[in-house]
Amino acid sequence: MKKTILITGAAGFLGSHLCDRFIKEGFKVLGMDNLITGDKKNIEHLFQLEDFEFYHHDVTKFVHVPGNVDYIMHFASPASPIDYLKIPIQTLKVGSLGTHNLLGLAKEKGARFMIASTSEIYGDPLVHPQKETYYGNVNTIGPRGVYDEAKRFQESITMAYHSFHGLDTRIARIFNTYGPRMRLNDGRVIPAFIGQALRGEDLTVFGDGMQTRSFCYVDDQVEGLYRLLMSDYTHPVNIGNPDEITILDFAQEIIKLTGTDQKIVFKELPKDDPLQREPDITLARELLGWEPKVSRAEGMKITYEYFKSLSKEELEKSEHKDFSKHIRS
């Protein structure tokens, strides 16, 4: 019999790619999303399939799905500063109440449960690269606090259910991921840079641009998540690409990729913006036999072609909002 998996945040960037992967693997996929930040167009190609069902539901409210559920992947959460600064309470609720509800469902169904944690739990790290054993340097009341603490709580309650109830759990610490279906106006650095380039605007770099990020292409990320879910490991695992680059160098790569001649303009660094971000993926290599395969040059070319294919209306829509104080990578 087919295994059944529930994926929350299914209409989002990463959630929709996970739906695709599990359909390909022969699962019955139940996608759930309240569409606050997700978009049905990301999964509409799945609606015609017998093995896909969509639930328009907010996981902060009681969650029930009929029948057997073998796996639950909780990927519902605002993931960009523009979103979680606009809906901070909802961000905290989906990480706390939503996680609690889904853990209860997993306990009821006897399902294996995975949460999408984040590199943001490391805050502005004092250790580099970041290993799973590092506890982080987080400002609980800063502008990122609602997202960071929601994710940290997710990890705590997930481990509590594992320890107290014996629930089979997985914790994925996801580092910067990119690829098709990212929202052009979500404020993160890749869609921000590409959107500016497509509109003929100068590229905005914050601070001196020497802060670093490590970008993982979505196909690699999904492969790592799949392997972690199917593993027997219950503690956090970093899933990301350790190929580190400064934001300034990355802006120059975008200019070269897009064939534009925009200038780079500098603005004040946002509060609590991490100065370094690079995953130590030793554990993922040893435990899962996983490491990224797609180079940044290859992945960015695919991503740029995706953004170029968007309508003029979508491009102009992203132009009318000022994201400058929210953009992050």
Rank of each mutant, 00 (worst) to 15 (best):
K263Q: 14
E244A: 09
G259A: 02
E286A: 12
D272V: 07
W290P: 11
Q276E: 10
E223S: 11
I245S: 01
L229D: 03
R227G: 07
K312F: 12
E253P: 00
K321L: 14
I254L: 08
H320S: 14
K271G: 01
P242A: 04
L287M: 04
E278P: 00
H235E: 11
F215P: 06
E286T: 07
K256I: 06
P279Y: 10
R285P: 01
G299N: 08
D208L: 08
I245D: 00
K312D: 14
L225Q: 05
R277E: 14
V294Q: 05
L287A: 05
P242L: 07
S295I: 14
K308A: 10
G289R: 02
Q252P: 03
D249K: 12
Q211E: 12
I302Y: 08
D272A: 07
G289T: 02
K256H: 02
T246K: 10
E286G: 06
V294A: 02
K271M: 13
K293D: 01
V265I: 15
G207Y: 12
P279H: 08
L310I: 14
T246C: 08
I254A: 04
I245V: 10
V294C: 03
Y226G: 03
F266T: 03
K267C: 07
L288A: 00
S214A: 09
R213Q: 10
D280I: 06
Y233M: 00
F307A: 11
C216N: 11
E319N: 15
D219K: 14
I254M: 10
K308E: 15
L283M: 12
F206L: 11
R285W: 09
L310A: 05
E253V: 08
K267R: 15
K317A: 15
Q221T: 13
T303S: 14
F215M: 12
T282Y: 12
T258H: 03
E305L: 15
L269P: 04
Q262F: 06
M300E: 02
E298D: 15
T212G: 00
Q262T: 12
P274C: 08
K308Q: 15
Q211A: 08
S311Y: 08
E305S: 10
C216V: 06
K271W: 06
C216S: 07
I255A: 09
M210L: 13
R296K: 15
L225E: 01
D219A: 11
Y233N: 00
G224C: 11
E278V: 06
G259E: 01
D272G: 06
L310K: 10
Y304V: 10
Q252E: 15
P270R: 10
Q252A: 09
G209S: 05
G240I: 02
D280Y: 03
I264N: 07
S311W: 08
G209W: 13
D219T: 12
H320M: 15
S231I: 02
N238I: 00
E314L: 14
L288R: 01
K308N: 09
K256G: 02
C216H: 05
K293Q: 13
K317D: 14
I239S: 01
L248C: 06
Y233R: 01
G207E: 13
L228F: 01
R213T: 14
R277W: 10
E313Q: 13
R213Y: 07
R285D: 00
Y304F: 15
Q262I: 07
